[in-house]
Amino acid sequence: MEFVCVNPSLLKISLSKEVYTIDVVYKCFYWYSGKYSVTINEGLSTIEIDLELGEGIQKVDGLIKRLKIDLIDFKTRDIVSKETVNIRELLVAKAFAHGDEFDESPPGEIADTPTNC
């Protein structure tokens, strides 16, 4: 992770693709694109991001700190959403299914089960 303040209105960020996927980067920097002009370039092993603010970026240290936190958060969100995509689909399918077509069998040993169930 590299942050370089090229000039007062341009911050260059370089992220390793091994650490951050392009999805995570897009989702994270989406929230910066209201205030800043954001350019994202995908290289072979890195993702290069330019944050530009015509009037000059104030408090660069604070911005970098915030960016680091946000990147971790969006990466965490990515882990959770990727890992739960199937269960989420199942949940929604069950929620809108008619009757009990998607019901699971209850947990427990066979010996725990009432007769004929």
Binding site: I69, D73, T76, R77, V80, S81, E83, T84, I87, R88, L91
Partner: peptide
């Protein structure tokens, strides 16, 4: 195992 959830500071 994880279940779907989201979070915010």
């Amino acid at each position: 195992h994880l279940l779907p959830f989201r979070f915010i500071e």
